[in-house]
Nucleic acid binder design. Sequence first.
RNA 1: GGUCUGUUCGUCUAGGGGUUAGGACACCAGAUUUUCAUUCUGGUAACACGGGUUCGAUUCCCGUACAGACUACCA
Length: 511
Amino acid sequence: MKEVRVRFAPSPTGGLHIGGIRTALYNYLLARQNKGTMILRIEDTDQGRFVPGAEEYIIQSLAWVGIKIDEGQGVGGPYAPYRQSERKEIYKKYAQQLIDNGHAYYAFDTAEELEVMREKLKLAGSDNQQYGITTRNLMRNSLTIDKPDVDSLLRSETPYVIRLKVPENEQIHVNDLIRGEVIVDSSQIDDKVLMKSDGMPTYHLANVVDDYLMKISHVIRGEEWLPSAPLHVLLYQFFGWQNEMPQFAHLPLLLKPDGNGKLSKRDADKMGFPIFPLNWTDPKSGEISEGYKESGYLPEALINFLAFLGWNPGTTQEIFSMEQLITAFSIDRIGKAGARFDIQKAQWFNQQYLKAKTDEELADFLLDSLDKEQITCTREMAVKICNVMKERVTFPQDFWLQGKFFFHAPITFDESVISKKWNNDAVKVLHAFSMEVDKATGFSAEIAKSLLEQVTASLGISSGKILQALRVTLTGGASGPDLMMTMEIIGKKEVCRRINHALATLKIHAS
RNA sequence: GGUCUGUUCGUCUAGGGGUUAGGACACCAGAUUUUCAUUCUGGUAACACGGGUUCGAUUCCCGUACAGACUACCA
């Protein structure tokens, strides 16, 4: 089998969509599994849509999720340059080759003329308003204009494009690794523009030429490319490269969580989940989109989640590291149908990966959050907090968000707990408990527990009845990690202070 | 409209001519827990429809419906 060389070829038109990450991932998995090469090529042939910063963003995003580029933009390689805008001359040469052997032609039609042609066809009730077999003879191109006139038009710098001359009555077979054989009649393919009037190639030409020159073995891309795959096959034939043609695999699409259609940034915004891997600021509008990273997703969790959207190992194993994915991956097990995007599953993966980390590792997250809040905390305490909280967090920032009470006395108290549990018994117990804690020589979860038992026993009140009240005085909330450990972490003095403060300010609601 | 692609629990999916159609997420219930969470146990829930082929079809074939993609001098 020939060397596996795959490419991820995004267009730098904005933030890198999460679906793009999945495409990159499948390419990467195939490359690694076969000791092949992962190539990053930037498809920036549309100068009108170029967005500054997008290319760097793509590179950083791939790096963050752990997809390493072996060759291409940012790392270099034997087939440089890897930015298509810098390969203009190459495409020009190949386009000329197509012209020379009659597979392409010059077209001088203006945008208005094209519009008129389409309108006419529409009015005539035609299904097919393409610039192609049936219409090319009616248009202004080198097929209808005499050669001397064409030459003078070219010399006079009249804007022109180069179009592919699609053959008549041909069945074009595309062999897709995921979908099998797809057959399309050439009448369905239009005379696609290969070279634009600004001298840049279109995707179709650039993609085929580059894949050939870069010796790409597999083209793994989204299903939205399936309709133009026959056109690409045609190009390989016209260039005489059919033996070097890569294998195609058109991936099922990532769909909106509700309803139908391709997952878009709009849906993500609406449902409140990220669409981009990292924070992305639109340079035009200044709009900031929060990324997966900044939202608290771990790259390994995101990758695991994405890998399972459209592929599965055929076993019941759910958790896969990148290494395991590389081993288990196979194109045969990629599904055909689009996959709805379910952020809940992503959260579950995140939780799994977070829980698998050591307290030490988790402490880094907490310390990080605290740093931003300008709160100092010893590493030892951070480790302890993470230990008691790790079973209840989904995101790294939850340690801080759900554990603020470790650092600040509560400002408000949960109303429902107060109204239900803040009664005479609770006040009695808490008052006595606070005094006992104050008197105690040492303090720990153990000590707190036995002191509380003593107090409740001597007052004849069951501890279950007042624990909620105790929690609310300490944390302000109705739920949280183990109360005794919480007290140990908060410390003796602060425990007394918070209880006494609550005792002094809260009115008895219940009896 | 045309072309292409697709359709198994709410979601991701396994499976495949004869199965109690399996797993995971989510949801619900029970157990554990000082609360919540975790964990454990259990539960609800699916082969789009209609024809064929066949002893038998969810599985194969053909239609229909529905959905999506594409239909640019965008990728």
